[in-house]
């Protein structure tokens, strides 16, 4: 480890490429925890947004007009407004209105932390898109297939769970894939409410070490890698769900 650190210190001395996140223990720790926060935000928001999408798309087919209107209203609000404004709305707007609580240090703090607000607003933002993505998948399932399920006695919920959703998911997976990639990248907006994710800690590091171009490059590589992993997982999932003789699976 010392050898590696020494090599990177040497690199800085000879070339000016200052990778403090490798040779400086403090910066390394900050950076790793930032990457961890980015992964945490991404994974939790992805899961919640998928649940929101699945429930929203189901509610869109509700026989009750009020329910359909509520879902459509939600989609309009979160799709037509910038995600940064949403985050500010939640953190500075709603957060101000909600009662404050005392933390273990005796400080009055917001009842919902900035990390939690980031997860809430990112999940809702991506969830609104996921509703529309799932809907496109559901609408592509032939009516006759769901009719067959109804004829077998399935309830609306049963049809959705056992027939519509599994088929819709396979159809909309490429679009879902895109949106989740976007969501991962949008976690950088949590920077604006001081969530210590990768961009935020990188900014701290380059403020201290004046290595802006280096850290920028590191960030670009980091996100390229993180998105690469997500896309890899999504493609594996897509392959696992492929049905022999149907859609993509038909060619195999």
């Amino acid at each position: 480890m010392d050898l590696v650190a020494e090599w990177f210190r040497q690199l800085y001395d000879t070339t000016g490429i200052n990778l403090t996140i490798v040779y400086d223990a403090y910066d390394r720790q900050r950076f790793i925890s930032g990457v961890g926060m980015t992964i945490y935000l991404s994974v939790v928001s992805i899961l919640i947004s998928i649940v929101i999408g699945a429930i929203g798309a189901w509610a869109q087919g509700s026989p009750l007009r009020a329910v359909r209107a509520a879902v459509n209203g939600f989609v309009v609000v979160f799709r037509n407004t910038p995600p940064l404004v949403q985050i500010f709305f939640f953190y500075f707007g709603l957060g101000q209105i909600l009662p404050r609580v005392e933390n273990e240090d005796g400080m009055m703090v917001q009842i919902i932390s900035n990390v939690q607000w980031a997860i809430i607003s990112l999940s809702l933002f991506a969830g609104a898109y996921n509703v529309e993505i799932f809907r496109s998948g559901i609408e592509a399932v032939p009516r006759t297939t769901t009719e067959a399920a109804e004829a077998l006695g399935y309830t609306r919920m049963g049809v959705y769970r056992h027939v519509l959703l599994p088929l819709a998911l396979r159809i909309c997976l490429p679009a879902l894939n895109n949106n989740l990639v976007n969501l991962l990248k949008t976690t950088t907006l949590a920077y604006a409410i001081a969530v210590p994710e990768a961009l935020y800690v990188s900014k701290q590091i380059w403020n201290d070490s004046q290595n802006v171009p280096v850290m920028m490059t590191v960030l670009l590589l980091l996100y390229t890698g993180l998105v690469g992993i997500l896309v890899f997982i999504m493609h594996r999932w897509e392959r696992a769900l492929a049905i022999p003789g149907y859609g993509q699976g038909a060619a195999k």
Partner: peptide
């Protein structure tokens, strides 16, 4: 009703997955 009445369709309508 539907557990008493079975139905088969022109396009089979099997669950492809």
């Amino acid at each position: 009703l539907r557990r008493k009445v079975g139905m088969v369709f022109q396009q089979y309508n099997l669950f492809p997955h």
